[in-house]
Design a protein around this nucleic acid. Sequence first.
DNA 1: GTCTATATTGCGATAGAC
DNA 2: GTCTATCGCAATATAGAC
Lengths: 221, 221
Amino acid sequence: MSTDTTRTAILRAAERLYAERGFGDVTLRDIVAAAEVNLAAVNYHFGSKDELITELFVTRSIATNRERLNELKAVEAAGGGRAPVDDVLRALVGPTMRGCLGPDSQRSDAARFMIRASIEAIPAIRKIKTREIDHLRKFAAALRRSLPGTADVEIYWGLHFALAMAHQTVRDSERLLRLSDGACDLNDVDGAIARVVNVAALALTAPKPSAAAKAPARRER
Amino acid sequence: MSTDTTRTAILRAAERLYAERGFGDVTLRDIVAAAEVNLAAVNYHFGSKDELITELFVTRSIATNRERLNELKAVEAAGGGRAPVDDVLRALVGPTMRGCLGPDSQRSDAARFMIRASIEAIPAIRKIKTREIDHLRKFAAALRRSLPGTADVEIYWGLHFALAMAHQTVRDSERLLRLSDGACDLNDVDGAIARVVNVAALALTAPKPSAAAKAPARRER
DNA sequence: GTCTATATTGCGATAGAC
DNA sequence: GTCTATCGCAATATAGAC
């Protein structure tokens, strides 16, 4: 365990730098400088830059998914196997949003790293994304229990929109902040989560407009 | 005009490749190979890789904003200066979504390029983003006319969520497609736009939960 | 396990002939 | 304007001493 200090220092430094600046802009030299270890140590411990990124991603992905499922399990147990829609959605978007917007810096690095990973297309990561689909199916199933009678398509769109709003909120909070001149308070993490959950729940429960209204005559340009 | 063929070929090839693979993974050598021009031509016509990207971004940014504003102007004129919320939102998200999901490949390259540009942090682009804020203020103003009495903060969050959903839908349509086993039809562009517009409109018009409901007691982990 | 030193590759950019 | 050839640099990765 004592010789893991170098390895751990590399992982922590890499996660922080990748979260801040993305994969393309961070070199192994940047990482070893931040971790105060030798350049060769990275290849010794991880084999290559891509394998380092993959290890980070897999570790964090498992942790995030577990956190989400724990919350889901808790709210479903509290409701006798059927949780309110809001609680299911909060279990989905809460961990990431609290991680990115909250004060804990190491959680923040981890969450922001995951956002980067979901955006920048590292080949190894694309493969792992299949697991994310399976993970989301568990939330689809929970929503089916919460909303019996709702079409599956609506549930998928609801999950999609919930993740879209959560993701964008943590990824580009600056635009919202500047647009609103600071009036939209992103330090209020629970408030932001509640907004995302509320809108996603509306998407899932509000009556749908008729099909005719979905494709209005397109205006000329 | 005839000597612009090289320049134009570079721009088109660069836009397509950047749209497909992102800025970091596409080299000037990739671009000149696709455009079937000489390597030195890029630096002759544009000065540097960053200036090439900037030129593409500025051009497309202006075009997208003009398209959005034209649609906004049309729907506001049709309503005597006050357009329905749905129409304002459709003017905002329609151009990008039609561009990315629609069949026209050149429009698709352009729209997907813009998505890339909004994600990957090229310094020159970050500067231009200030203009995007000003652009969004026009839509905030239109929504204020559509929804008198709605708090500004709600309008900003509504715009934020509308863009988030539109953006994610075109950026990661694959996840939704796989999650739904193809049941969520993204070839129905107008249907997808209607869904985004509908949910964003709900976010803007539905009554808000009380403040107490926004910060429920956090469950232990 | 950790270091120094280096091999190797590929990048953006440029000089200079045509 | 377009080409060939090449510079200078920074990247990942590795070999081999300790």
